[in-house]
Write a protein that binds this DNA or RNA. Sequence first.
DNA 1: CAAACCCCGTACGTTTCCGTACGGAAATAA
DNA 2: TTATTTCCGTACGGAAACGTACGGGGTTTG
Lengths: 249, 249
Amino acid sequence: MTIEAGLKSMTDAMPSRTDVRNRLLNMMSGSDFALLAPHLEMTALKERQVVEVPNRTITHVYFVETGVVSVVAVNVDDHRIEVGVIGKEGLTGVPLILGDDRAQHSAYMQIGGIGRRMPAAAFIEALGKSPSLRALMMKSAQAFMIQTAHTALANGRAKLEERLARWLLMAHDRLDSDAVPLTHEFLAVMLGVRRAGITVALHSFERRGLITTRRGQLTLINRAGIEQVAGSFYGMPEAELKRLMSEAV
Amino acid sequence: MTIEAGLKSMTDAMPSRTDVRNRLLNMMSGSDFALLAPHLEMTALKERQVVEVPNRTITHVYFVETGVVSVVAVNVDDHRIEVGVIGKEGLTGVPLILGDDRAQHSAYMQIGGIGRRMPAAAFIEALGKSPSLRALMMKSAQAFMIQTAHTALANGRAKLEERLARWLLMAHDRLDSDAVPLTHEFLAVMLGVRRAGITVALHSFERRGLITTRRGQLTLINRAGIEQVAGSFYGMPEAELKRLMSEAV
DNA sequence: CAAACCCCGTACGTTTCCGTACGGAAATAA
DNA sequence: TTATTTCCGTACGGAAACGTACGGGGTTTG
């Protein structure tokens, strides 16, 4: 199926489908891809690069291929916390899918990578033309919403170590390597806790043989063990994503 | 406009628009209302009545008119926390709007009331027929999503008193009275904290003249004061709801 | 009208995490 | 190489909320 679709898109002038690593672009029908392809632009997504600013119009949607986007809710009092992450399974600009043109949250590359982007207007136009594309994008939005709900659950009920484990697993799912290139400081911002709290927790993980650490980087070496730490705070949104995407044919 | 639309729908056999108190049903076009009306059924929404069960197909959508629905995320380990509330501004069954037929979360009447409900299948069919209805429902879904994101923020960063104040304000927005008929126990479940913690916090509110309390009920008597306690954890989702609904014409 | 139940007030020791802060080691810039 | 910056390890007192529990006063039920 993938091969067939890939070959089909080869006949188009636009980016060949075979080298696209975003899962949504991969799985959508050839005709939906053809609708988007003329507007897709390959782009580097550098660490800390901002893709959405709260209260501002969304200019582009980004189909992430490698790297991880953090979506961070911000208060007027500068309280902030991550409400979701986006990687190769998704795209930024979820509000556009629901007919809103503005970002409520801050979104930026937490871990650098690459992706394809297209202007918001072109994306909206394509959505208007294709019910099947719309359906797929809405399932993606739904998956993101489930993730956010579980972030709320974890924030309210889980301990620091459980939340940290959950975050590492979500990042790992979206990376091609076991290395997570992040400082304690940034992990702390995402989870809304002290930097020192992260340091201590990671130490504990390391002592238990779950990860190794270096300055500005940590590496998962026992994923199953980390899953055990996260317990039931990890997994449900991931299973739902799988379900939604398989339903989407 | 409302009058005109109201008169128009009077010509139909189905529920007259004038006595409908759900804001979405109020504001949608006469033709969209006509699309739904034949399937709408007036229904009592009793305290603790379950409207959605996790992992089960959604049978009906409920347009709430009075009362408050709690949407509660549940873990396999029975950790639970409220991720959103729905009142007269919205409807239950948000996943249906996004093309999913299942509920991820538990949803039940936290405060009893009345509403109109319709079978999921009929709702989906109506969505398929009317782009404008779809647009309105998606804006509603978007508003709910924003609320959930801010619940995640509050759960992660706010103190118990701030979160409790936020919850009381959100409930108050959806009630016609200043009385909130709830036990400490249920407030505790929603916020994911100890019952005793709620008791102490409410006491503090009462001492400060913000509320009065009775067994199984509390009454807001100084809303501005409660807003001050909630600080910036309250308000943003409410403002966004307003914006989204006014944009929706 | 008594028994049972539910709800609230209160208490105490404990856990978790915070705020803050300081110094040293590693990386980067000059 | 040296200076500067960034990042990490560690520490300490304190705040917030937890788990648990007990009793008493309302409210419902038999």
